[in-house]
Design a binder for these strands. Sequence first.
DNA 1: TGATCTTTTAACCAGTTGGTCAGAAAACCC
DNA 2: GGGTTTTCTGACCAACTGGTTAAAAGATCA
Lengths: 210, 210
Amino acid sequence: MARSAASKTQTRIQREKTELIMTAALEVFATFGYRGSTIDQIATEAGLSKPNLLYYFDGKQEIHTRLLEHLLDRWLAPLKSLDAKGEPIDEITAYVMRKLEMARDFPRESRLFANEILQGAPRIMEQISGPLKSLVDEKAAVIKSWSDAGLIAPIDPYHLIFSIWATTQHYADFDAQVSVILDHRAASRFEDAAMHLSEMFRRQLRPSAT
Amino acid sequence: MARSAASKTQTRIQREKTELIMTAALEVFATFGYRGSTIDQIATEAGLSKPNLLYYFDGKQEIHTRLLEHLLDRWLAPLKSLDAKGEPIDEITAYVMRKLEMARDFPRESRLFANEILQGAPRIMEQISGPLKSLVDEKAAVIKSWSDAGLIAPIDPYHLIFSIWATTQHYADFDAQVSVILDHRAASRFEDAAMHLSEMFRRQLRPSAT
DNA sequence: TGATCTTTTAACCAGTTGGTCAGAAAACCC
DNA sequence: GGGTTTTCTGACCAACTGGTTAAAAGATCA
């Protein structure tokens, strides 16, 4: 009996196979969403039989839940390291760059998250209204203090954060569209996006001479 | 026999029921994606029995296809009316506002589109690489000419368009997240977003004094 | 009113889905 | 090597899926 959560000491095979399954499940869930994905599909992707996969996990739901739990830590890391004591515009621009790197390096995680929110976030709502909201509130306050002090242009910190999320995640979530529209220029899309976005947010944040 | 595409003269009931089904299907497909949605679910949402629904449509695929066809016209309209002869910054800002209004007034259409692209756009790729790309190329050229003429700041027109799409659609596609984070301020999210985005893009586009 | 055409339903079907279980095959350990 | 534990598989199941069909119910119109 393995049954994931039950045993504490894991064998080598257990570690390898659970990891294999999680990776396969990420790929499938990120593309088809929870309801659109099947255990068979995940098993095939992982190169296992369905009963074999179910030997390691209690069911479809558990795999998905585990993926989402794992996801939020990685997801919030870039915002977490926004430093209230740093130089405001550099800090925000660096945050944008970190977020864009996430879209480039972890597009499946981005799509998994997008799929979940699109569906109304039924299985992740607690994490959104809990830790995610807390962190956003905290960092929005930091940005507001910069804004109030005149270090950056007056701005609504929440909508600024939304704009950063939207513009960066777009390159992961809408990659199918982005790649087609950019066609031969698609290879350099992340470098070009980095130039574009850093310039865009810098211009927006630079305090106007008064 | 009704069978949708077949007959040309439609009865009152046919018009009403097909409309009813399309609306229900939009709601369901927008939330769960193609594979995650079931005919039964759409039928229930429309207040019909499954065989009754299938009396009006040939199958799940046909309903989805019809929705996507209908979608792109509405989707491209805001960009289509970007006028090369207008005042550049006003034209682009007005485009942003039209796009934001779409996110506010047609969130289900936005999510349907998002869901399709997330999955790699399998059922809409021709429309993306055909009419959509053509239109984007055309308008990107207009924006580039403004940029070259010094009427707006130097900018990559494609990435500007992506930023406009991303920031506006975010309020429809990620509404579950946006509403929770803004909580009591959520009621005015579209007005606030309008202020934020128009200011953001204006600042970005204003030619710097040289 | 009754004949005709449209709309709706119950019953059904084959394939898929999430999940179980008994036992076979490997891996591990002495 | 032999015994024990872990890993894996084929066969199976009930519920659900997309879809069909024949016939009932309802609308329409002379």
